[in-house]
């Protein structure tokens, strides 16, 4: 058994298992951790498919940044207690499982009809990647896909701004009077008072 076959058969079941784990566990943090492992296994698949750059990006972006964001939000909202058990929508669970199995069956049929279960990718992928995969990708990305690339950069900026706008807590803006009234509060809390107020600690003792 060639090495890549071994790797595939080790990580593919792991991938499926972690995905199932993500669905079934009650605790949201545990689900997120399962998903991280799953993303790692997908990264390994990319490695097997001769896409080392995406392997790295998958780990950095998905397993790193995105899942950290997930965990952060889960803990911020304090919703890691897990869902209440039971299903309120009638027949939702049964139908969902049937549909999930059906779609796998259908896709398997489609794959079999399309390329068959034994087709192997031709060798010599290195020829497509002159100077290594990242540099070849860069060549395609910044030549053929330059405009979409720039568009996605705009998309990212818009998304960042949108997130700020959405997450901004609309605090009641303080009136000038309120600001003046509460100006000394912080100082008082530390046993100090606003300078100039009678009986302040800052005044020289007589």
């Amino acid at each position: 058994m060639p090495l890549d076959n071994v790797v595939f058969w080790v990580f593919a079941p792991l991938s499926v298992a972690t995905a199932i784990g993500m669905i079934v566990v009650r605790n949201a943090v545990h689900a997120a951790l399962f998903l991280v492992v799953n993303f790692f296994t997908i990264a390994v698949m990319y490695l097997l498919l001769d896409a080392p750059f995406l392997f790295a990006v998958q780990i950095v972006v998905y397993a790193g940044a995105i899942m950290v964001l997930f965990l952060f939000v889960i803990m911020l909202l304090g919703v890691d207690r897990g869902d209440a058990p039971g299903e309120r929508l009638l027949g939702q669970r049964t139908t969902a499982v049937i549909l999930a199995v059906a779609i796998v069956a259908e896709l398997a049929t489609a794959i079999r009809a399309g390329i068959g279960f034994t087709t192997r990718a031709p060798g010599g992928f290195d020829a497509v990647n002159p100077g290594g995969n990242p540099s070849a990708l860069a060549d395609v990305l910044f030549r053929d896909y330059f405009f979409p690339f720039e568009v996605t950069s705009i998309l990212l900026i818009v998304a960042a701004v949108a997130a700020m706008v959405l997450a901004l807590r609309r605090s009641k803006s303080l009136s000038q009077r309120e600001i003046e009234t509460h100006a000394g509060d912080d100082l008082e809390a530390y046993g100090l008072a606003a300078p100039g107020a009678p009986g302040t600690v800052g005044e020289p003792s007589r």
């Binding site: 060639p2 890549d4 076959n5 595939f8 593919a12 991938s15 499926v16 995905a19 199932i20 993500m22 669905i23 949201a28 799953n38 997908i42 698949m45 097997l48 498919l49 001769d50 919703v79 869902d83 209440a84 299903e87 939702q92 669970r93 139908t95 969902a96 499982v97 549909l99 999930a100 199995v101 779609i103 796998v104 896709l107 398997a108 794959i111 079999r112 390329i115 068959g116 279960f117 034994t118 087709t119 192997r120 990718a121 060798g123």
Partner: peptide, 28 residues
């Protein structure tokens, strides 16, 4: 590379349906 391409596609199909199941089943 000895692993048939179809295996990756099958794995992808399974993961996709599991993801879908998660969307349909979880309430959070």
């Amino acid at each position: 590379m000895r692993t048939p391409v179809a295996y990756f596609l099958l794995l992808s199909a399974i993961l996709f349906s599991l993801g879908t199941a998660s969307v349909l089943l979880r309430r959070n």
